[in-house]
Amino acid sequence: MSVAGLCEICESATVEDRCDRCARLVCADHYDRDSGLCTDCRAEYGDRPPTRRGSEDYPDGVDEYRF
């Protein structure tokens, strides 16, 4: 990815990539290439694999809410 600027997490290193979940521009130290997530998003997931972009984990198999 060709981006310029400072990492949005450490604010000191040069940007290397963008998180697939939150879209933050991050340096190589704060990006997990295997998951495509920044270290903050990866910490939220723990050992769970990330869901597809834009989807969330719904309780009890519910996949849609209507109001």
Rank of each mutant, 00 (worst) to 15 (best):
C38F: 03
T51L: 15
L25P: 01
D57L: 11
T14S: 10
G5L: 04
P59A: 06
V62S: 11
D20S: 05
D63H: 14
C22D: 15
E11C: 13
L37E: 09
S55A: 03
C38S: 03
L37R: 12
S35T: 15
D60W: 14
P50I: 10
P50R: 11
R48L: 06
P59W: 09
D47R: 08
C10N: 07
F67Y: 08
E56Y: 15
G61Q: 14
G61I: 13
C10F: 08
R48P: 01
I9W: 00
L6G: 04
E64R: 15
M1T: 07
S55R: 10
Y31D: 02
V3R: 07
R21M: 09
T51W: 11
D47G: 05
I9L: 06
E64F: 10
C22K: 05
V3Q: 03
D32R: 08
L25F: 07
L6K: 15
C22H: 07
D57N: 09
D57V: 14
D34S: 13
D63Q: 11
A23F: 07
I9D: 01
P49H: 10
D20M: 01
A13I: 01
D29N: 10
A43K: 14
Y58L: 15
D40T: 12
R18Q: 08
Y45M: 02
I9V: 04
D17I: 02
P49L: 12
D63W: 09
V15H: 05
G5W: 04
D29L: 03
C19M: 05
D47Y: 04
G36L: 05
G54R: 07
R66I: 12
D17E: 12
D29F: 04
E64D: 05
T51P: 12
Y58I: 10
D63F: 12
C41H: 09
E64N: 06
D63G: 11
G46K: 01
Y65M: 11
P49D: 15
R52A: 08
Y58C: 12
R24T: 02
D32S: 13
R48E: 02
A4R: 00
R52M: 04
M1E: 06
P50T: 11
C10I: 10
G61V: 10
D34H: 12
D29S: 14
R24N: 06
R53V: 15
D60Q: 14
C27L: 02
V62D: 13
R21S: 07
R48G: 00
G5P: 12
D20T: 00
C27Y: 01
D32Q: 15
D32Y: 13
D40K: 13
D17V: 01
T14M: 05
A28N: 09
L6C: 07
R42V: 03
G54N: 07
S35F: 02
D57C: 05
A28G: 06
C19E: 03
D47V: 06
C38A: 09
E16W: 06
A43E: 10
M1R: 05
S35K: 14
C38T: 06
E8S: 07
A28F: 08
R66Q: 09
H30F: 01
Y31W: 07
C19H: 04
H30R: 01
G5I: 08
D47A: 10
V26G: 02
R52T: 12
